[in-house]
Design a binder for these strands. Structure first.
Length: 801
RNA sequence: GCGGAUGUGGCGGAAUGGUAGACGCAGCAGACUCAAAAUCUGCCGGGGGCGACUCCGUGAGGGUUCGAGUCCCUCUAUCCGCACCA
């Protein structure tokens, strides 16, 4: 009899062995077929690992382990995305240096990850806060700066009143700071920006060439928000100046009955002298400025506005004079900050027109009465539109744009929702921006040989009340000589956002110790692109977009060998508490992975998280489900007592063995881990029914299970005395001919309803099958047979009237 | 409002257009045990029938098909993004 299954002993033992033997180190043999699997590196928070982390890590661990056994040179790395606010806030509160906080958190995370038996290549571990790493983050920034893609500008930023830090749009959720929940207000500051908008088209178009799950592509496209339309110049009545608007519906130009400018539009000041109700307009502008973006959209339904008295525009196609309004439903940050209003065919304009009694002119026929209901559909026929009359939407749009361009009063134009990336943070715990400001020479980049610009030690990490970074107080560090003219100059004191380090980390894994380049061209050429990248849906519009942008830039610079960083992107579902709600301390439904490992073992946790349900859907935690998986592993453990001698697979299980090899192999690749495990459970049930297992069956089975439960299977391999290590074993292959049973269950249906199931030889021909089926259901064959359908190997359907 | 996803037993979930409910959990029964736990074996959607059987059943309603959980249309509920982007 075997000893009892004790994961507490065998799991640490094998974890140590794998490390000692460098079992999962990727080799630099660039002639072997490669497989680069990537999971998002974690932010090492003070809370430690969450049960959500192992789900994606186990998934790609399974694929990586399988691919290694299939002969691939696999790179499956791990590292730490360690700059960031929570660490800094913790450091401030507890008066510990963020470097030490990070060190402690990383140590804890690493221990936890190792206790789960992931086959990460720990020789390639990286840390974004390591100067040898952020050396190259800064280097990329210099490249961006020198290419004109990094610039500094005064702009209103989202200012968190609690963190005292500027936030990217993406970090503001429902008007509050994503991290701390405090209100976010607008504040004008000089900020470093990255021109991600320069790559907006490529970021959309190149999605066609990559294998991302559809919802990721859709989200990225929506976030970038490309729209194609035209700019149209409206002359201001009695002036030479023009008011330019952006529209996606130039076809409706004949239906324009008024115009609207954003309250912040510069024309309000420019034409102050002409505007008779200037005070009223200014009052409206102040009112709008007081509202946060959130409040503006909260009040979206109820339109407000003021008509400008003394300034009107001329519709360039009708020649009619029309009023200009200001309203906060028009945003200064999109298009030109002004719109032409077509109330008949735009719901916002329609609401506004109804409220302020502006005329509504139908120019697209096909809807109901436009005085009663807006008609926005891009179908129907143009009316009341002179030379466009009778055309459909597409023709009218094209014709109008041609007309505008010919007359020089408009032009075809694309617009994007995507904005440039606000790249500075007034914080300590981030990469210093390697720029020096000289009054004479302007912004001067550091020389490459002066990198890394190391984050200096400061006494206090508190951001200052005036919104400067803590680095600003360090005069010794700040005041330097200009590298250009030698005169007095100051260092940039803002640091980079957390997204910086994660925008290129997958490149560093290919050659993590390189001191001369971010990675060698050879390593990049061999390993890139990442073959399979799995991560959370929450990173679809931020990290994924930012890193694609940087990669495309590096590609244009000739530094990386491919235009896209990731060939394939998948996403995992969240793990919810047992009550079906998101796990959180306040809800009291948090499960700690350490506890699960202690009580049941890492293999049980891994098996459970893969068995819990479809990988891409959210799943609720169940303690009973965990126990069930432990029970399964116990049954696997006891197979060792049922081993019998003999060559090959037993006759009764041969088909099932081949079927299982086939199913497990393909299900792992398709991320259908739950059904792969179900198939292995079913096979174990069959071994128990047989009461024995042959040596070949045992060996094959533990190889199949190994990627899911690596420790128990490695131990069983060792106990059974198989040669070498299981992690080095060869993945089994199935024989398609042997996945088919000699006899089948032939289903006999009448009018699609099953009436009998008959045993029949697998290779039965159509006529015999139909004859057999008819015999089985003869009692029911009372009507006229119209049709007989035979699905080979499956069923006969007799259609009867 | 727009976009995306989901809806199948008591529960988690399976089903290339071909026997709906694999596998697991919970439950029930039996074996083992002085007993319990653990383990092993069997049963396990609902109605009707002693029974061989039979009818109903995949959120609702239509449709396509010899045949629909699966494909098409309409609706509904829940979840997740985005939100005046002209």
């Amino acid at each position: 009899m075997s000893q009892s299954y004790n994961p507490k002993v065998i799991e640490p033992k094998w974890q140590k062995t794998w490390l000692d033997e460098k079992a999962f180190a990727a080799t630099n043999d660039f002639t072997k077929p490669k497989f680069y699997a990537l999971v998002e590196f974690p932010y090492p928070s003070g809370q430690g690992l969450h049960v959500g982390h192992p789900r994606p890590y186990t998934a790609l661990d399974i694929v990586s382990r399988k691919r290694r056994m299939q002969g691939y040179n696999v790179l499956y790395p791990m590292g730490w995305d360690a700059f960031g606010l929570p660490t800094e806030n913790f450091a401030i509160k507890n008066k510990i240096h963020p470097r030490l906080v990070t060190k402690n958190n990383v140590a804890r995370f690493k221990e936890q990850l190792q206790s789960l038996g992931f086959s990460f290549d720990w020789d390639r571990e990286i840390n974004t806060t390591d100067p040898n790493y952020y050396h190259w983050t800064q280097w990329i920034f210099l490249k961006l700066f020198n290419a004109g893609l990094a610039y500094k500008t005064e702009m209103p930023i989202n200012w968190c009143t609690s963190c005292k830090v500027g936030l990217a749009n993406e970090e503001v959720v429902n008007g509050v700071c994503e991290r701390c929940g405090a209100p976010v207000v607008r504040k004008v500051k000089s900020q470093w920006m990255l021109k991600i908008t320069e790559y907006a088209d490529k970021l959309i178009d190149d999605l066609d060439g990559v294998d991302y799950i559809e919802r990721v592509k859709v989200s990225q496209k929506n976030w970038i928000g490309r729209s194609e339309g035209a700019e149209v110049d409206f002359t201001l009545a009695g002036k030479d100046e023009k008011l330019t608007v952006y529209t996606t519906r130039p076809d409706t130009l004949f239906g324009v009955t008024y115009m609207v400018m954003s309250p912040e539009h510069p024309y309000i000041d420019k034409f102050k002298a002409d505007i008779k109700n200037y005070d009223e307009i200014m009052a409206y502008r102040d009112e709008a400025a007081k509202k946060s973006d959130f409040e503006r959209s909260e009040l979206a339904k109820d339109k407000t506005g003021v008509c400008i008295d003394g300034l009107t525009a001329v519709n360039p196609v009708t020649g009619k004079e029309i009023p200009i309004w200001i309203s906060d439903y028009v945003l200064m940050t999109y298009g030109t900050g002004a719109i032409m209003a077509v109330p008949a065919h735009d719901s916002r304009d329609w609401e506004f027109a109804k409220k302020f009694n502006m005329p509504i002119i139908e120019v697209v026929a096909g809807g109901r009465d436009v005085q009663e209901e807006v008609f926005e559909a891009k179908t129907g026929t143009m009316v009341n539109s002179d030379f466009l009359n009778g055309m459909d939407f597409a023709t009218a749009k094209r014709t109008m744009i041609d007309y505008l361009e010919e007359k020089g009063i408009g032009r075809s134009k694309k617009n994007f929702k995507l904005r440039d990336w606000v790249f500075s943070r007034q914080r300590y715990w981030g990469e210093p921006i390697p720029i020096i400001h000289c009054d004479k020479c302007g912004y001067v980049p550091l020389k490459e040989e002066d990198l890394p610009l190391v984050l200096p030690e400061v006494e206090s990490y508190m951001p200052t009340d005036n919104g400067e970074s803590p680095l600003a107080a360090m005069e010794d560090w700040v005041n330097v000589k200009c590298p250009c003219c030698g005169g007095p100059a100051k260092r940039e004191t803002d640091t980079m956002p957390q997204w910086a380090g994660s925008s290129w980390y997958f490149l560093r894994y290919t050659d993590p110790d390189n001191d001369n380049a971010l990675a060698s061209p050879e390593a990049l050429k061999y390993w890139m692109p990442v073959d399979w990248y799995n991560g959370g849906m929450e990173h679809t519009t931020l990290h994924l977009l930012y890193s694609r942008f940087w990669h495309k830039f590096l590609y244009d610079q000739g530094i990386v060998p491919c235009a896209e960083p990731y060939s394939k992107r998948t996403s995992h579902g969240m793990i919810l508490g047992s009550n079906g709600e998101k796990m959180s301390k306040s809800r009291g439904n948090v499960v700690n992975p350490d506890d699960v490992v202690n009580e049941f073992g890492a293999d049980t946790l891994r098996t459970y998280e893969m068995f819990i349900g479809a990988f891409d859907l959210a799943a609720s935690w169940s303690e009973e489900g965990v126990k069930g998986c432990r029970r399964f592993l116990e049954r696997v453990w006891k197979l060792q007592d049922m081993i019998v001698d003999g060559e090959g697979f037993s006759e009764e299980l041969e088909v099932k063995m081949h079927q299982t090899i086939k199913k497990v192999s393909s299900d792992f690749e398709a991320m259908k881990f739950n059904t792969a495990i179900a198939a292995m459970m079913s096979l174990v049930n069959d071994f128990y029914k047989a009461g024995r297992i042959t040596k070949a069956e045992f060996k094959t089975f533990i190889i199949l299970l190994n990627p899911v439960a690596p420790h128990i299977t490695e131990e069983l391999w060792n106990i059974a005395g198989f040669e070498g290590r299981l992690y080095n074993a060869q993945w089994p292959e199935h024989d398609d001919d042997k996945t088919v049973e000699a006899t089948i269950k032939l289903v006999a249906q009448i009018n699609g309803k099953t009436r009998a199931v008959i045993d029949a030889p697998a290779d039965i021909d159509k006529d015999s099958a139909i004859a057999l089926a008819k015999e089985a259901v003869s009692a029911r064959l009372t009507g006229t047979i119209i049709k007989e359908i035979y699905v080979p190997g499956k069923l006969v359907n007799i259609v009867m009237k």
